[in-house]
Every structure is written in C-alpha cells, then in structure tokens.
Simulated assay, not measured.
Amino acid sequence: MQSIKLTYPITENDSHTVTEPQVMAIGEFDGLHLGHQEVIKRALTTAKHLRTPAAIMTFHPHPKEVLGQQKYTQLLTPVDQKRRMLERMGVDTMYLVSFNPDFMQLTPEQFVENVLIPMKVNTVIVGFDFNFGYRGAGTPDTLCELAQGRFAVEVVRPYQQGGVKVSSTLVREHLQKGEIEEANALLGRRYTVEGTVVNGDGRGRTIGFPTANINLAESFVIPALGVYAVQVTIDGEKFNAVMNVGKKPTFVADLERPTLEAHLFDFSRTIYGSAISVEFIAFLRPERKFSAVDELIAQIRRDADRAKSILTALENN
C-alpha cells in the first residue's frame, strides 16, 4: 500500500502521483471500528467492480484536536497503526492530509474543486454523518450536488449494534470506563496499543512480579486506570499477561502520567528495547492505594490468577 502525505494546496506534483481514476473513502476513521469498516469495505467492493484502485483519504492531526478539543491528542488508532490496518484490509493508497489552518478554511466547493477533482476520483464513499468544508458546512447531499456528474457519491448508512450507532466517541467512553469488552465489540477487534519495552524502577522484580514497562510508540487513548487481563506480542510471539495501567499510588505521590506495566506469565527473557503490542481483553479492578506492600503482593497474586483463568478460558473457546 502506498502512503502519501498531502498538504493544501494540492500541487501538480501531488496530483501527478495519481495516474488513473480511483475510488476514495474519506473520513478520520479513528479506531477503524465496525462502522468505519463498512465504509472501507464499500470502497473496496466498488473499486473491485470498477477495476480501479481503492484509496482512503484521512487527516492528521485529528480535526477535533485542531478545533481545540484536547482529548483528541490521544487516538484510538494513531497514524502508523492505522496505516498497517488499512494495508491489511486491502487498501491501495492512503492519503494523509495535513489538517492545517489553510485546509480548515476551505469551503465545500473548494474542497471538491481543489482537492477531489485533481485526485481523479471517480467514486467517493462517505459515511452518513460526513461533514467537510469550513465549519463542517458540507454534507453528503452537498457532495452529491457539487459532483455535477464528474464523480459518483455513495453514502453508507449508520452501523448499529444492539440498536446503538457505533462511533469513535462511544468506543472512547467505554475505554475510559474500563468497559473493555464493550469497546472491543464496537471495534470488531481487541483494542491494542503499541510501544517499546523500557527500563522501569525495578520494583516489580523485588516483589516477585517482574514487569515489562511500556513506552507507547504514539499517542494512544489510555483506558481507565486499573488492572487488566491482556495478551502481549513480542517478536511475533504472543504471551498471556496481567497489566497495571496507573500511577502507582502505593509507592509514588502525584505521578503525572499513568504507566503501563505488564507481568508476562511463565516468562524470563530480557526484552528491553523490544517492540511490544498489548491487546486488552478484560478489566479486572480499578487501581487503588495499599497500606502495605504485603497487601499489594497478595492482591497482585489474585489479579494474576484471575487473569490466567480468563485468558485460559478464552484460548479454550
């Protein structure tokens, strides 16, 4: 899959990278949840029928971050992870558009004339709630009107699960409440973060539970503080683990950022510097402060036993 960065205005060199008509799905696609997957599958199906490439146009930074909503500095699927997922889905090209002040000011008409037309789109696929142009003035109906027969527009209906519309906002809300199973159901996959194993304070080893301390590779949405049953992948090999997401209140006061520390079961290798991905399976309990280290150790032991039980049952199903 090609990955092409675009900055407005689209130059001749940018548009020359497009050598043939293409089907293009447009959206932020943060999370690539089941609703997003429906839009992308429609693009892939249409592209196959028309025998043209299938492209995705997405944006960075997140438009809502640029508009001042700071929580969107953290993403469900940061750029690199999104790129790999789209490639696995079969997308031919991902266009990553810089969502800068110039791009923000585009009218719907300018977006069509100065962005879509130079990109040689023959079909545009969008979700039912797609907005574009300055202050989101453009809608799917606007897009159809502005196309003027130069390209087709396909609008994908809302994807619902249990009578509720699947959305990135809803996925975020579930994660922030520790509702992992609910978030995973909307994603159609396990919520996954990625990073590198780094040196920690070594305290876990001294109390009998050595941990892999994870420095996140990108700015991921962090689930609720607490303890989780997880599966981690290192060098292509998957391991069951229990992980704490938190600020270590038993030992540290006022830690600014939460840490991610995974205790891998039946594992003794040295993995500092290794790439690691973590799939969240189940929320076990909220993080809390213990009055004594022995009390913490006993609780970690119970957490590990419960995580092993959950993960073993998962593997046997």
Score class of each variant (00 low, 15 high):
residue 287 E to G: 03
residue 144 C to F: 08
residue 105 Q to I: 05
residue 74 Q to V: 09
residue 60 H to P: 06
residue 284 L to W: 05
residue 276 I to S: 01
residue 132 F to P: 00
residue 33 H to W: 08
residue 182 E to S: 12
residue 24 M to Y: 13
residue 4 I to F: 14
residue 157 R to K: 12
residue 177 K to G: 06
residue 146 L to M: 10
residue 255 L to A: 01
residue 100 N to D: 15
residue 127 G to R: 00
residue 54 A to Y: 01
residue 304 A to I: 11
residue 250 T to S: 03
residue 256 E to C: 00
residue 124 V to L: 09
residue 153 V to S: 02
residue 40 I to N: 13
residue 268 S to W: 07
residue 301 R to C: 14
residue 182 E to G: 04
residue 246 G to A: 04
residue 283 F to I: 06
residue 92 D to I: 12
residue 140 P to G: 02
residue 2 Q to I: 10
residue 276 I to D: 00
residue 101 P to Y: 09
residue 11 T to P: 06
residue 282 A to H: 13
residue 92 D to M: 10
residue 130 F to S: 01
residue 74 Q to M: 08
residue 259 T to R: 03
residue 87 E to K: 12
residue 278 V to N: 01
residue 240 N to P: 03
residue 270 T to M: 07
residue 34 L to K: 13
residue 261 E to T: 14
residue 178 G to M: 04
residue 70 Q to F: 10
residue 55 A to L: 02
residue 157 R to I: 07
residue 189 R to M: 11
residue 288 R to H: 06
residue 216 L to I: 12
residue 310 I to H: 15
residue 150 R to G: 12
residue 138 G to Q: 03
residue 226 G to K: 04
residue 85 M to D: 11
residue 268 S to N: 13
residue 265 F to N: 13
residue 104 M to H: 12
residue 169 T to H: 10
residue 290 F to D: 00
residue 14 D to S: 14
residue 258 P to V: 02
residue 167 S to W: 10
residue 42 R to V: 07
residue 223 P to I: 13
residue 211 T to H: 04
residue 56 I to P: 00
residue 208 G to M: 08
residue 223 P to K: 12
residue 214 I to Y: 02
residue 294 D to E: 06
residue 267 F to C: 03
residue 116 L to Y: 06
residue 12 E to S: 14
residue 299 Q to S: 15
residue 53 P to T: 08
residue 106 L to M: 14
residue 240 N to T: 05
residue 198 V to Y: 15
residue 109 E to C: 11
residue 81 Q to V: 15
residue 2 Q to Y: 14
residue 185 A to D: 12
residue 148 Q to H: 10
residue 47 A to C: 05
residue 265 F to T: 13
residue 248 K to E: 00
residue 163 G to R: 09
residue 256 E to F: 00
residue 38 E to Q: 13
residue 87 E to S: 12
residue 266 D to L: 08
residue 197 V to G: 04
residue 235 D to W: 04
residue 180 I to R: 10
residue 127 G to Q: 03
residue 97 V to N: 07
residue 65 E to S: 05
residue 242 V to Y: 00
residue 232 V to A: 01
residue 143 L to A: 10
residue 196 T to C: 09
residue 214 I to P: 03
residue 91 V to N: 04
residue 79 V to P: 03
residue 6 L to H: 02
residue 61 P to M: 02
residue 39 V to K: 02
residue 103 F to H: 04
residue 133 G to S: 11
residue 110 Q to E: 15
residue 304 A to G: 11
residue 172 R to N: 08
residue 135 R to C: 13
residue 309 S to V: 05
residue 247 K to F: 01
residue 143 L to Q: 03
residue 263 H to F: 03
residue 84 R to A: 15
residue 26 I to A: 07
residue 149 G to R: 08
residue 250 T to W: 00
residue 199 N to C: 06
residue 245 V to W: 01
residue 221 V to P: 00
residue 218 E to P: 05
residue 83 R to P: 02
residue 97 V to M: 15
residue 16 H to Q: 14
residue 81 Q to Y: 14
residue 52 T to C: 00
residue 90 G to P: 15
residue 117 I to Q: 15
residue 102 D to T: 11
residue 7 T to C: 14
residue 36 H to W: 06
residue 166 V to P: 01
residue 16 H to W: 13
residue 204 G to H: 06
residue 127 G to H: 01
residue 227 V to T: 10
residue 132 F to L: 01
residue 282 A to N: 08
residue 222 I to V: 13
residue 262 A to G: 04
residue 293 V to M: 12
residue 110 Q to K: 15
residue 62 H to Y: 02
residue 90 G to K: 10
residue 129 D to E: 08
residue 94 M to L: 15
residue 46 T to S: 02
residue 203 R to T: 10
residue 72 Y to V: 05
